[in-house]
């Protein structure tokens, strides 16, 4: 894989802060153009440090970063033209008006004012901020501020958009509408890298995923491949009629959760037809079925725990 063929290429990236804390230890990562990529990891794993280095707010200790083939040190200006960043914390002047904030950001990328105004108007409409365009940013709600940062990051039309926990603290309805918006711009060709704590978000939106823990990438694969690693799944079955006891069926371990629901753990890929047939024979009518837990979340916890066990057992992976 050549650097030119990637949207983002990170090689042997390390960061040691002034207090001696190693935040990143030789990270290698490639993200392909057009991808919707999730960077997952617990708090303090190094996600924000990686984003900080890519956006040049954090100085790397060693290693290299290229954006669409342009090294951020050797070809700083071109590399940055391709990049839009939505940080985790609000970082705009709360005294400035919404429209000014977005238009000014375009100016910092050399976009002429007339063109910047047109793009800003379009983005503010798309992100439902048009009515607030003349309001100082301090008057916006938390969700609106997040959308403002997305508009600001997109105003110079970057090919790579990085979002650091964009839906943190955002209500469910707004989160869904942001997902739709991000999916749209990804389908229109923008490569997106997302860090999130909501693993459901990564599962629903992203095609590929890297998991980082203690400054090291411990898994880098497609979401599908990652989910394949789960060999057992737990389903909750809601039943129509009240159950007095747990029905006995062959080849499946059922557990009575309450009078109207059962729980069954099965090997991944094992057909459930036989289970339903046995339940039907016992006059148990299943009206709905769902996964007991978020599957990716379960796997994420397992991977991080395994990494920490290996780490503790002597030497890092």
């Amino acid at each position: 894989m050549t650097i030119q063929s990637t949207a983002l290429s990170i090689r042997a990236l390390s960061k040691v802060y002034g207090n001696g804390k190693a935040a990143l230890s030789g990270v290698d990562l490639d993200v392909m153009p057009g991808d919707f990529f999730a960077l997952l990891g617990p708090n303090g794993a190094g996600k924000s440090t990686i984003i900080g280095i890519i956006s040049s707010l954090v100085r790397k200790t060693s290693g290299s970063v290229s954006i669409f083939g342009h090294d951020i040190d050797a070809n700083f200006s071109v590399a940055k033209q391709h990049l839009g960043v939505v940080p985790q914390e609000f970082n705009f002047s709360v005294f400035e008006k919404v429209q000014q904030i977005v238009v000014n950001q375009a100016g910092f990328y050399g976009v002429p004012r007339k063109e910047a105004l047109q793009t800003t108007d379009q983005l503010l409409h798309q992100l439902n901020l048009w009515d607030k365009r003349n309001e100082p940013a301090r008057n916006l709600s938390g969700g609106m501020k997040r959308r403002l940062m997305i508009a600001r990051a997109l105003v110079h039309k970057p090919k790579l958009l990085i979002l650091d926990e964009p839906t943190a603290g955002v209500d469910i309805e707004l989160r869904r509408s942001m997902w739709e918006f991000l999916t749209e711009i990804n389908q229109a060709g923008t490569t997106i890298i997302l860090t999130t704590h909501y693993l459901e978000e990564a599962e629903n939106l992203c095609r590929n995923v890297a998991i980082i823990n203690k400054g090291e990438i411990i898994e880098n694969t497609s979401v599908k491949n990652l989910l394949k690693q789960l060999n057992r799944e737990v389903f909750v079955l809601d039943v129509r009629d009240e159950l007095m006891a747990c029905p006995e069926v062959e080849n499946y371990q059922l557990r009575l959760r309450d009078a109207h629901s059962l729980e069954v753990e099965v090997e991944k890929g094992k057909p459930l037809n036989d289970l339903f047939a046995q339940l039907a024979a016992k006059n148990v009518a299943v009206v709905s079925m769902r996964n007991k837990v978020n599957r990716l979340e379960e796997l994420f916890v397992t991977l991080v725990k395994n990494h920490e066990k290996r780490d503790g057992a002597g030497g890092r992976v």
């Binding site: 040049s56 707010l57 940055k80 033209q81 960043v85 705009f92 050399g110």
Partner: peptide, 13 residues
């Protein structure tokens, strides 16, 4: 207020 980051992340020399 960290709004200086608007400039620092941009290609403005």
């Amino acid at each position: 207020h960290r709004s200086i980051e608007e400039l620092l992340v941009s290609p403005t020399p």
